[in-house]
Amino acid sequence: MASAPSHEVAQGGSVAGAAAPSWWAAARSKNGPGYLFLLPWFIGFFGLTLGPILISLYLSFTDFDLLTAPHWNGGANFVRIFTADAKFIQSMRVTLFFVIVSVPLKLAFALGVALLLNRGMRGLPIYRAIFYLPSLLGASVAIAVLWRQLFAGNGLVNQFLLNFGIVGPSWISNPRYSLWTLIALAVWQFGSPMIIFLAGLRQIPLDMYEAASLDGAGRWRMFRKITLPLLTPVIFFNAIIQTIEGFKSFTPAFIISGGTGNPINSTLFYTLYLYQEAFGFFRMGYASALAWILLVIVALFTSFSFLTSKYWVHYDN
């Protein structure tokens, strides 16, 4: 596919010196093309996205209750959140723990399986499909029932443990373990980062391995010297995205705890709490304040990641 032009171009590139035609330099230095390519995004951003975002910022300083006009209440929402809201602290703790544990686990699984499934082996497409299947289920209602079949007191996990003489607790409804069952669910649905890793692996030019193997490099060395560095943009992407998604994680807890975050608020994810405030208890203004605090936290984290990415993410330039 399209190998001819790329070949031609690539050869041209190797011959080419540094001097570029002046119109190109001019075009590059000008902003025209960039903004032109971004035009659809700009229309969407200014037309559909920005307005609601700014309004939610405004609402975070009001007492908006969904049904009557919002009233400005200054920073009252934020004051309450930071001084008198135990559920805010609890939900932040739950969410942080979830992110810190589930994101690395999920990424490790996804990368490991992607590496395994990238190799030449019979039936790989089938395996890939099977490993992706759980992610296809998304947030189906069926998941709630399924998860109880696995993790309740008499569920499959405990039946298995009984073979070793272990009597397990009811994982899903014991506040000590319930969050772990949600982590298990998140890790089980590792299909999306796996696919992205696979696509990333496919983008690594084969001839780099050829050259390395001529130099007598072993498999591990090639993984460390070629695969891993060239995969860093994708690893970076997956880490950022999974972290953001982890902070915003809503549906698993919503479905499995019936929207309550119980037992004893042990699965009260941040956005679940936010949702309860907004639609359960008619405090959309307060919920908006919660949302903007989350945005700041996630943005800080993301900026930090981008700053450090200079030192470990290798782009081709």
Binding site: V145, A152, P169, S170, S173, G258
Partner: peptide
């Protein structure tokens, strides 16, 4: 029932 069993029923949903 035990606390663990009762906690399976989060919302009085009939199936739980």
């Amino acid at each position: 029932v035990s606390a663990e069993d009762q906690a399976l029923d989060a919302t009085d949903a009939i199936e739980n």
